[in-house]
Amino acid sequence: MQAYYSDHFVLPLPPGHRFSMPKYRLLRDRVEAEAPGVQLAEAPAATDGELALAHTPHYVTSVAEGLLSAAEQREIGFPWSPAMVERARRSVGATGAAARAALAHGVAAQLAGGTHHAYAHKGSGYCVFNDVAVAARLMQAEVHRRWRRLLRVAVIDLDVHQGNGTAAIFADDPSVFTLSLHGARNFPFRKEASDLDVELADGCGDEDYLAALDGALAALWARHGSAPPGLVFYLAGADPHEGDRLGRLKVSAAGLAERDRRVLGACRARGVPVAISMAGGYGRVIDDSVAVHLQTLREAHRAWLAWQAALPAPPMEESLP
């Protein structure tokens, strides 16, 4: 299974900053050591033209050329630097590459991403560009160019925070269905309207969480009838975990593994490829977040193996040495 990383593009953050930059390298180290079925590749950088598929040209230029105001940088949560720009481009590029690989092989992932608080015209909540929004529009363009058909997309956002930027970007786009399962009283405190929002109470545990997920998935498939989407972007946040500093929920690691199995299994049963982003994870013990992300990638690899077993065998001449 293909997965993309960008952790070597590190932001110069001040001491004590709440965003855990080391998490991404720790995750890659564990994938390399413990998940041999996951093939890692460096993320490509998204171009200005690709970013403009989901962001205003003015905002793309402001980020690229260091023209963000102090207030805009505060809303993002990162001080501007060339490293910030490069990392943001790579995060978007990783999701685009994962989506392309998922369309070819069923399942693929990136080891960061899920920057769902970024709007078309601004960043917010540690999100500079919206990787899923750009990748969705890019895959729609590529599919249309190659096969002259519309690629319908669904976003299954299971980060503990609502995907407000994604919801706003696709508010008037019937080709993209946005689903967000999130903490009712958590950031962002002014939420946007997704196609389907499911709010969870503080302290929500495994049983209630999985019941809410089952209902949300059932509604997603029902909305699409007999024609499921052609691609799912799955934001597999680690922040619903009971040990997360910002999550306010009480979902166990086992509960989150079951979450991943249900999402991936439902997509596999319907033949819908899945591109996975890790999204949030702010564990009091950072290794807890890393462990949750790692088990997501393990579940993704199991789903990928199921896809490969079901794919038709190549023609005899292609299998000869």
Rank of each mutant, 00 (worst) to 15 (best):
M1P: 03
Q2I: 00
D7W: 15
H8N: 13
H8Q: 14
L11K: 07
L13N: 08
P14Y: 09
P15A: 11
R18K: 03
R25E: 15
L26C: 10
R28C: 13
A35Q: 13
A41Y: 12
E42F: 01
T47I: 04
E50D: 13
L53V: 05
L53M: 14
T56E: 02
P57T: 07
P57H: 09
H58P: 00
A64E: 11
E65A: 14
E65F: 03
A70G: 00
A83I: 02
A88I: 05
R89C: 06
R90Q: 10
S91D: 13
G93A: 11
A94I: 04
T95E: 14
G96S: 13
A97G: 05
A99F: 06
A104L: 14
H105P: 00
G106W: 13
V107S: 03
Q110T: 12
L111C: 09
H116M: 01
A118K: 06
G123E: 07
F129P: 01
V132P: 00
A133K: 01
V134F: 07
A135D: 06
A136P: 04
A141E: 15
L151T: 10
V155H: 07
V155W: 04
I156F: 12
H161S: 10
H161K: 09
Q162I: 03
N164E: 11
A167F: 03
P174G: 11
S180C: 13
H182D: 08
H182R: 09
G183D: 12
F187G: 03
P188T: 06
P188K: 04
F189K: 08
K191M: 08
K191A: 09
S194Y: 01
D195G: 14
L196A: 11
L200K: 04
D202H: 08
L213K: 10
A216F: 10
L217P: 03
L217A: 08
A218L: 08
A219G: 04
G225T: 09
A238K: 10
D244G: 08
R245P: 00
G247M: 09
R248H: 15
R261W: 00
V274N: 07
A275H: 07
G283Q: 06
G283D: 06
V285M: 05
V285I: 10
I286V: 15
V290C: 12
V290R: 08
A291D: 14
L294N: 08
A300K: 08
R302P: 00
A303F: 11
L305K: 11
P312D: 09
A313P: 01
